[in-house]
Design a protein around this nucleic acid. Structure first.
Lengths: 258, 258
DNA sequence: ATCTATTTGTACGTATGTATT
DNA sequence: AAATACATACGTACAAATAGA
């Protein structure tokens, strides 16, 4: 382990960090330099106390910082301790969601991105999915093949249809693209969908949405990239029109992240 | 403040949280429910200790968790304490960067997104920028109007030209789009650009890059959205070809976040 | 099933540091 | 300069969890 004077991964932050934060940064750069992998064990509390020459509480606060960032997990008991941990997607979403909590993202903002990114993903995935993955997509669509009876069911189906996109995102070869699409779907799920429930059930729109997804699965199975892209694009345009009409507002809350 | 039993913003995480984590979550949902804004003050340590009926260390660890997530800042001294804080962009980038630390993002992955997102932003900004903003962009380009003399200068210019995109990102009306473009530029800046320095200075490429940016500024000033989009698209295609040729690898390290 | 060893988790008292008035 | 109001850090004692004998 490097000396406690190792302050930061970069000199970009000239601020005086609190001691726990310094310790946390030191551990981070140690993890990088030692090329530690998820599952690798960090020194235990007592060792840390000795090596850094700091009190127990200070070390514990440092570990909490790393834990909050999703970089370590800690277990009690024999063989316990702190372990390097791969930041989970859920955590990353939550952390990024915190950033946007104070901004006021609109549905329009999100759809501006979905409109170009979702078709991109669809084209990528054409011909790349396993039978299992295609089946999972079909099973998801099955959750909303019947038109909704009431507003509540419509709400649930809307959430479920967003799961379709999360599923696709999880198959992405490009992890950045996959993460973003999953993040946006999560944000939309967390909307107070239809805060004012517009009464006119829109059968046409529901029909179009599910049809798009079914056609999309076919195109993906056949490996027809251009067609998958075009269908997704249409799907997004329809969804956008729907969402914007609802004037749905982003619900301001913090996401949960394990 | 809600009772300490308020565990999480959502019941999505069935895990047993540590007490500090519970306290942190309770405070978060309290901030949301009380609709607190950045700058608002949280109860001080002693009050927290009393309200949650927990020891000082536990409370402090909780505050550290929130601090690590960028949601609060703490000051010592009279009138000090913990304050709600808007998550900074730098912090959000760092936190998201941690997630990708364990994935192996390639330059190709990033460019797949830049290729569609940067032109989108360029089109948005056409006719929207103030004289100051346009001047700032021009000033940035001025940092690399002269061809690089050596590999080191080429590296610096490359970083500087990424700043051009960060600048554009900061002007974005769509905060999600702006954040992403800034994030990607940051990731690229952090690359070990040219780990193997290819010796053939490529004057043509350098020329094309700066010309694109100069033309782009003109299109933005004139409010010609389609043209701005087209130029940026070309710019991205050229940059992608360059980067991929360098076979640049992502440097695995943690970003700094204030 | 019980004990035991290991390691984190919680509690609390005290002293120090820091910024405001 | 001094008093005040806060967080910060330390050290110790004990509680809880978990794996293995």
């Amino acid at each position: 382990m490097p000396p406690a004077t190792t302050r930061s991964t970069r000199d970009a932050a000239p601020q005086r960090l609190s001691r726990p934060a310094q310790v946390a940064e030191a551990i981070k750069s140690w993890v990088v330099e030692a090329n530690m992998k998820p599952g690798d064990r960090l020194p235990n509390e007592l060792e840390m106390i000795e090596r850094f020459g700091m009190a127990k509480g200070t070390i514990r606060e440092a570990m909490r910082i790393l834990e909050a960032q999703g970089l370590v997990k800690t277990r009690t008991g024999p063989g316990g301790g702190s372990f390097v941990h791969e930041v989970s997607e859920a955590r990353a979403r939550a952390l990024l969601g915190n950033y946007f909590y104070f901004k006021d993202l609109t549905v329009t903002d999100i759809y501006q991105l979905r409109l170009v990114l979702e078709p991109e993903l669809a084209a990528d995935l054409a011909g790349q999915l396993s039978a299992d993955q295609l089946a999972a997509l079909e099973a998801n669509v099955a959750r909303y093949v019947t038109p909704p009876k009431d507003a509540e069911e419509e709400r649930q189906q809307h959430i479920a249809s967003l799961d379709f996109h999360k599923l696709l995102a999880s198959y992405a070869g490009n992890e950045l693209l996959g993460f973003l699409i999953g993040f946006m779907a999560q944000m939309l799920s967390d909307l107070t969908v239809m805060r004012r429930l517009y009464e006119p059930r829109n059968y046409e729109l529901w029909k179009m949405g599910t049809d798009h997804q079914i056609e999309l699965i076919t195109a993906l199975r056949l490996g027809d990239g251009p067609r998958a892209r075009a269908i997704m694009r249409e799907h997004m345009e329809a969804a956008q029109a729907f969402m914007v009409r609802q004037e749905a507002e982003m619900e301001r809350r913090f996401l949960a992240g394990r």
